[in-house]
């Protein structure tokens, strides 16, 4: 592992936390104030009675909005913009949705298994018409398990950066440069967890999430291609261009 001073780790942790807070889309206070606002039964039914393709499009728009914040987050991480453009794109293509899934736990209410979506808190039944119950259930389960770790915003920020800077993504041109950045981020995360007197097992649990996140994202890709096979024109004409670039 690279030799990094404590000062450097502190500095990186501060930079990543600040970047996260500046780009987190919703402040914790906003989200907490809305938890009592869950969709009423007739509103749930309204989502359920939308045509499948309309609901898909709405979700694609929401995912794209969230991803734009993740792109901003990446740009503010020290060292990210110093990577070659190919690698910036490779990392965002592979990791931006993973960070959206991580961020989902901030907007998740474990008490009633709902997530902030389209202005209120929504249970998994809201997404029924999408026809991908497995993916939705897995995303909710993932958010729930992330919540059970009770990470602070700083820890969440560092974990998000650690995921974004994954050096094992295919097609990286300067793999070792990414590797060094990721290692430094991991050290900063470790340092932060120690400082917060969290047990060693938290880091192990977080590292285990890497494969869960990859599974979630590949399931999203599979679900999208199944949808696209039936509705190619809808995707072509109505899905956000950034979404198509990332997942096309």
């Amino acid at each position: 592992s690279p030799t990094v001073s404590m000062d450097e780790l502190e500095h990186l942790a501060q930079n990543i936390s600040k970047s996260h807070m500046e780009t987190c889309q919703y402040l914790q206070e906003e989200l907490q104030q809305s938890t009592w606002q869950t969709f009423l039964q007739d509103e749930v039914e309204c989502y359920q009675s939308k045509p499948k393709e309309v609901m898909w499009q709405l979700c694609a728009v929401k995912i794209t909005e969230a991803i734009q914040y993740v792109v901003e987050f990446a740009k503010r991480i020290d060292g990210f913009m110093e990577l070659c453009q190919n690698d910036q794109i490779v990392l965002l293509k592979a990791g931006s949705l993973e960070v959206v899934f991580i961020r989902m736990c901030r907007a998740f209410d474990t008490q009633n298994n709902t997530v902030y979506f389209d202005g209120k808190y929504a249970g998994p039944e809201v997404f029924k018409v999408l026809g991908c119950d497995d993916l939705i259930t897995s995303a909710y389960d993932f958010a729930k398990s992330m919540c059970s770790l009770h990470l602070s915003e700083d820890e969440l920020a560092l974990f998000s950066a650690f995921i974004l800077l994954s050096s094992d993504r295919s097609w990286l041109q300067e793999k070792s440069k990414v590797e060094k950045l990721q290692q430094k981020t991991q050290l900063a995360l470790q340092h932060m967890l120690q400082k917060h007197q969290r047990g060693e097992e938290i880091l192990t649990k977080l590292i285990c999430k890497v494969s869960t996140l990859r599974g979630l994202c590949s399931r999203h890709t599979e679900t999208l291609s199944a949808f696209r096979a039936v509705y190619p024109d809808i995707v072509r004409a109505h899905f956000p261009p950034l979404y198509k670039e990332l997942f096309g």
Binding site: Q68, V71, E72, K75, R76, M81, Q85, Q88, I89, L92, K93, P241, L242, E245, L246
Partner: peptide, 16 residues
């Protein structure tokens, strides 16, 4: 580059 036009653009926009 053409394939990731929007991502390129987002990366090039200065952070606000």
């Amino acid at each position: 580059k053409e394939k990731h036009k929007i991502l390129h653009q987002l990366l090039q926009n200065s952070t606000s």
